[in-house]
Nucleic acid binder design. Sequence first.
RNA 1: GCCGGGGUGGUGAAACGGUAUACACGCUAGGUUUAGGACCUAGUGCCCCUUAAAGGCGUGCAGGUUCAAUUCCUGUCCCCGGCACCA
Length: 777
Amino acid sequence: MYAKVIKLTNMNGIKYDHAKIEKKWQEKWEKEKIYFPDLSRPDNKYYNLWMFPYPSAEGLHAGHAFASTGSDVFGRFMRMHGKDVFQPIGYDSFGIHSENYAIKIGEDPHKVVRRTTKHYEEQMRSLGHGYDWTHTVTTSDPDYYRWTQWLFLKMWEAGLAYKKKATVNFCPSCKTVLADEQVVTPAAAGKEPKDAAGKSITNSEELKVCERCGTVVEKKDLDQWFFKITKYADRLLEGLEKIDWSTRVKLAQKNWIGKSQGMLIKFETENGDGEIEVFTTRPDTLNAATFIAIADEGLYNQESSEKVGEFTGKYALEPFSKRRLPVWKTNYVAPGYGTGAIMGVPAHDERDMEFAEKYHLDIVQKDPDKNLWQEISEKGFGKKHTNYHLRDWLVSRQRYWGAPIPMVDCPECGWVPVPEKDLPVILPNISDYKPEGTGKGPLANHKEFYQVKCPKCGGDATRETDVMDTFVDSSWYFLRYPSSDRESVPFDGEVTRNWLPVDLYFGGAEHSVLHLMYARFVTKVLFDLKLLSFDEPFPKFFAHGLMIKDGAKMSKSRGNVVNPDQYVSKFGADTLRLYVMFLGPMDASPDFRDSGIEGMQRFVTRLWKLFNQPNTIDGQPSKGVVSKLNQTIKKVTEDMYNFKYNTAIASIMELVNTISDKGSNEEVLRSLCLLVAPFAPHLAEEVWVEVLGQPFSIHKASWPKYDDSKIASDTVTIVIQINGKVRSQLVVGNKQSTIQGDIETLSRKDENAAKWLKGHDIKKVIFVPGKLVNFVV
RNA sequence: GCCGGGGUGGUGAAACGGUAUACACGCUAGGUUUAGGACCUAGUGCCCCUUAAAGGCGUGCAGGUUCAAUUCCUGUCCCCGGCACCA
């Protein structure tokens, strides 16, 4: 088939028609179902999951392409290792993002989501990802949210869902409450901080804003639904020990859970009219306590950076010595944490010291006494106690675009769950879906929705009009994918047992304490309910970096969002895939630039020409080419497992350079094609089938193996160092390079080295076989 | 403040005890082309030097360990991220 061509010259005539070839194989892959594994046969299962996107109006941007390609490349790599890779995709389509956009353009969110999900699907197909399009999930579909509501009922049955009046975070712009986890620093939100009127705030120090819109949150006392995630605090902490996640993400969760062990200690007030209980992690410093500080909501909410206090006029008694400790109201004690009261120990706590100095309180120097831990509990003054930073998960939202909470408030029976058989509670189509910020959601204006009969007693009752937080939708979606075709259950027992947990979860680190913790919590609850056989959903999670453009995180507000479509149509999906994977390691934050992608296009063209007009040599390729090929297979294979696709591609480029220079044969080209396949699936398939004449499909072919014995090349360069400085080099035979005597002799004969050795005593010789020799003189 | 992750050419980056800058981008010169583009060839850290050879200096900064340090250790500065008056 190949003519004998010595030099790669005059290849300008060969064009790679990416549009035609990519379309051709995308259709063939779908027709032949090569990415649709048979879920009834799980022997070689590999569940490869990328965090599903919320379908925005703008569509996927290049950052999505970077992340999703990273996931897809690994899925292809595993498929070429004989795994039945299940790689599903879906849409996190409920929630404020989609709803706010619908409000902005004045269109029904149902319609908006239908349009945006369609656009996403087209974009993801155009990138050539190996998704199983027969198992997609859309969280705003009644078929899906029916089971989100089912999950709520399970929480209720397990005693883990409750409604309670509490001081909660409220976003005046989104006109809804937020979970603690959704209240973040402006930097984390990636937004300019704004006040309730939408004006930018420049003094952004220590501000807490809405994760969605960047508006400074307010505190309100409202009746809200919570999930008791605090009950799982310890289990969530312990589970971190057994999962393969980066320390960075694990620590973020650990910090968020914020476990601290200490004691609750009671102080009687002076005139015997009560007692004050404090939480402390340092009961051993009780002897040095000089005052009691209690939280004051009013002072606390003033958000003063300086410590402020007011003396209450009361005194509390230190339990052992009965010392009189003044009781102060302050702003530096958090009301919601511990007992909302602390003992002030200026000698052992900087903050207490600052306060004591400001208000001229006593400062007592006493050494800590470890025995106090025991003595306090023996005397009954206090007891050991563990506190957590983690709060219960606030799941209700006074919005429209979410799954209605399936509960009914009956004047006779109290809160009654909607029976499972009556699910889903359909979200009605209404036109007045804008939030009003009255503390009630838009559904509260619709009698036809909330006027119901009590499922228990049949009397008149009121349906809950709040909907669920989007993070409830996404807390269990990975369970639904393999069972998306089941109508009568949220997830099928057998399929779930066979295909879960997820083998590799690929996603952004920004979800460290939101989605990832909620999903772990929900999994543990379902495990306890004996509905799952595992209690960690994602034993391996890889956090990719966030793509940068012009030095800043891509975001619509900055106007630096790159749409991949134009690059797909101009350069093709393969070039774009290779380009974004080549930018840097997957966990870095690559900067997208146009000039780079043109360079990658050159590489793709070179590849295409190399395969179509190869400089084939008759018979066996040189040993140098064989050794380079084996080195490359080894390097690429190792890099793939570490998500260092950039260096994997670099070594493939090196191999291409070597082949261009020294020639190849069909066997070498086949291996090269296989190495390229995960990155450039279309080009590789075209070459594999049409040029190399191999059976369809390369994506089910075996990943090439390397032969250790063929890695070594004929000659090796040995570095000669004198006192650790490189002075010369020797090119010697492979065998000779490991013989110290030979190398020493050759080094002395080497002109350059001899110059440095002349007139010196050699004190020591360090020899690293096959690498270097170092003379110490 | 505490806890993570980082500071390497003009740029993205590689090496992570053993030739610092692989692989690319960009740039310079030459070839090819009617021209441009594309493509091909050569060069490209800094200093000294007409050039080359040879040499010196170079991985934020200052020390240390080692025959040998971007890599290990100590101190320090800066950037990014998480948590935070959480007692």
